[in-house]
Design a protein around this nucleic acid. Structure first.
Lengths: 202, 202
DNA sequence: TGTACATCAGTGAACGCGCGTTCACTGATGTAC
DNA sequence: TGTACATCAGTGAACGCGCGTTCACTGATGTAC
């Protein structure tokens, strides 16, 4: 029976991660001390360093977990409708984003905060965003194909959409001050993007 | 001649503020040490406390300056077109915002960063945003008046617009990674909001 | 199966670095007479 | 106008707090024979 030790260690590591997420959600990543995490996990301060080299390292681990989960979801996403002239295609993206954001907002916000202070995370976040931007830009380009004219260069429009999603997602999920249900929020943002990108004035 | 002392003190205070803005722009508010500011201003560390109680206090002072400048501008703003069905009315707001953001982005971003870590600034920022939101919401309500239907409750739509402006403003001015001139950025965001709020699908 | 030793996860007091903040000091400016 | 004293802005070394990080220790688990 050589598994008990490893299992105990794995439990402690999981407890530290879970505690970190809790504490990040409550006080924010930047305000969180290592001892806040260990205290919330019910472990001694020194225990932390058996598992993580630093708070940054823990956040990297949380990010790795997040990406692992996400990859599976993204795979299922392959054959969605690319045409943003169809409201349903826009809605699909908006709804996916909100679901993703609601599931992972604590880590996502922690990453944003880390990026403010730490070069490495800034690069990491930029890189992650860049992939999504490329994807969104393709959708925007689709609109142009057939007479419709999106309001600007595809990548710039994609950036605007991304900022809108992140910003409103933050209000909806973290601040909770939009006064809308998640469903209503999805409809609102879908309309805004759909009309904004593919719409005309009547 | 009792003015020389006061003048010297005022110069030092101004130098500290100017140095702070420089250093904030370069390393971010959160990464900036008091001694970074005094060094950039060419003063001794202790001199700082003749003028400000803390880094937060200095940021408050910068905010006060900003608001003083802004009030004058806002006054001239009184008789603008409230009807967001007119593209020009939207454009006016977008252009104003971009000009404001470009002029003050360092302090604005510093405030956002301070808000992450400091309750007091979080409240301050929320309060400042709230006024603008009310204003934007009125414009959105105007759209509803005449057959057009904005994509959701006025205040929620206003929040979405605000997030879009801030988010894209940040990309445009701070990151500088939109690939657009300020003029083109204004046109893009104007179209997006105009179509999104008052537009229909053709 | 039993015993002796090795390894490991966890502990928490102590250490030390970084940085905010203080304070005795300087030299210049202002005031009193 | 001159002199003596007071006040003030600025200086920078030193102090001390907070917190990340270490490390000797403990008790339990694993291994060797």
């Amino acid at each position: 029976m050589q598994g008990v030790r490893k299992q105990r260690a794995a439990e402690t590591e999981a407890a530290l991660k879970a505690a970190a997420v809790e504490v990040f959600a409550e006080h924010g990543y930047l305000n969180t001390k290592i001892t806040d995490i260990t205290a919330a996990a019910g472990r001694a301060a020194g225990s932390f360093y058996n598992h993580f080299a630093s708070k940054e390292d823990l956040l990297e681990a949380l990010l790795t977990d997040l990406l692992a989960e996400t990859d599976a979801v993204v795979a299922a996403d392959a054959e969605h409708d690319p045409d943003f002239r169809n409201r349903a295609a826009v809605r699909y993206h908006v709804a996916s984003f909100f679901a993703f954001f609601r599931a992972h907002h604590t880590v996502l916000v922690a990453l944003q905060q880390a990026a403010l202070v730490d070069q490495r995370f800034a690069a990491r976040v930029a890189e992650l965003n860049s992939a999504d931007l490329g994807h969104l830009a393709e959708h925007v380009d689709h609109v142009r194909a057939d007479g419709h004219e999106p309001p600007g260069p595809a990548r710039a429009v994609a950036m605007a959409i991304a900022k809108l999603l992140w910003g409103f997602g933050f209000s909806q999920v973290v601040d909770g001050d939009t006064g809308l249900s998640d469903e209503a929020a999805v409809e609102l943002i879908t309309d805004l993007i759909h009309r904004g990108v593919a719409g005309r004035l009547s």
